[in-house]
Design a protein around this nucleic acid. Sequence first.
DNA 1: TTCAGGCAGTGACTTTAGTCACAGTAAACA
DNA 2: TGTTTACTGTGACTAAAGTCACTGCCTGAA
Lengths: 209, 209
Amino acid sequence: MEIAEKFKNVFEPELLNEIKAKAKLVQVKEGDIILDIGQTVKIIPLLIKGILKITRADDYGKELLLYYVHSNESCAMTFTCCMQQYPSEIKATAESDVEFLAIPIGVMDEWLAKYPTWKSFVMRTIRNRFNELLGTIDQLAFQKLDERLVTYLKEKSKATGSALINLSHEEIARELASSREVISRLLKKLENDNKLLLYRNQIKLLQAF
Amino acid sequence: MEIAEKFKNVFEPELLNEIKAKAKLVQVKEGDIILDIGQTVKIIPLLIKGILKITRADDYGKELLLYYVHSNESCAMTFTCCMQQYPSEIKATAESDVEFLAIPIGVMDEWLAKYPTWKSFVMRTIRNRFNELLGTIDQLAFQKLDERLVTYLKEKSKATGSALINLSHEEIARELASSREVISRLLKKLENDNKLLLYRNQIKLLQAF
DNA sequence: TTCAGGCAGTGACTTTAGTCACAGTAAACA
DNA sequence: TGTTTACTGTGACTAAAGTCACTGCCTGAA
């Protein structure tokens, strides 16, 4: 089994064996919703390939991007939710085709006590997600929409590893909890400032960005 | 030692003994800063009495209230920061006179593996703080300032257990990352709507609130 | 008792963001 | 190929929030 190899520098050998024995490989397609708000957390995902997008939504359809989960990472929310079988407060969508190891929540408790590498993985993950949420809060509280848009595009580009971003203005507005027209205008201003080029469903970031 | 009694329904007896042996009682005055942004976390606080206010600040002085830590609770940030000796991303101020048990971070690791009640306390705390951060994000992303102000006043009242809130408009503006004049106007509107009464450095919430 | 400093109220204005309406254009597909 | 649909651009307006400037008032220290 090649899969657990990805984690061989993260977890101790015994734990890797446990993972091999207990985890199930799951594959989902781009756009699939892994977990929606209100659903009960049933597994802990360990990402092997692809990117998960974690978002938050209000009662009437508005949405907001919180952070991405990359390969070799996991989602802190699931750790803490699963321990006591609480429903999820967030939504996880496959940003690209995704493969992950689904770890049954039952082993969480035991592994935490038994495997130091698991414990520090969990703590590191929680710490990172906390900081990402704080980053999101900073953006919302202290930055204007044009700055948030720039940050968003940079992150998106970094996440996909490309200067070409395939998104409509509508989708961007959605993830920033704003509106399409406003995003269109701000993007146009960035284009006029030679920071990027606009195409239909596509944005190309330039060096100056 | 009476102190650990407060936690006798939360932790197992052995752990209580350890706490008695290793923790140090600390008393601070209203307004004291327990931990500032950038400082290294040296202890885990277990609150016995009073309220801690956790805030976030940007590079140029603007501030934002994140959440309160009440009696019998702790701060999730310190858990995860201390594990790897990272600097704090947040600021903790004593909202009232505060007493807490300072637990040396060294024991964290050991207790997590050894005491199930400690582990679930930690996980519960992390989960609660996550949800509070999500609440803050919701407010910022989806609510207008007048709604945020109302929520803020309600929380404040709940935290202190009183319908009388001793704050200047300036301070409120600060914690909502807004400006004094705007808050003054919104408060005035609430007063006109018979939701509250305004005094110098004091606000009285009415039933209608 | 006076007076300086902190606090509150408010008018006038600017900036930022959101909304409405509509036009033009690219892509999809029948 | 022509038609439909989704995406983009933009003017005009409204709403929300922030800023500036000034006034008056309460209160605590001299």
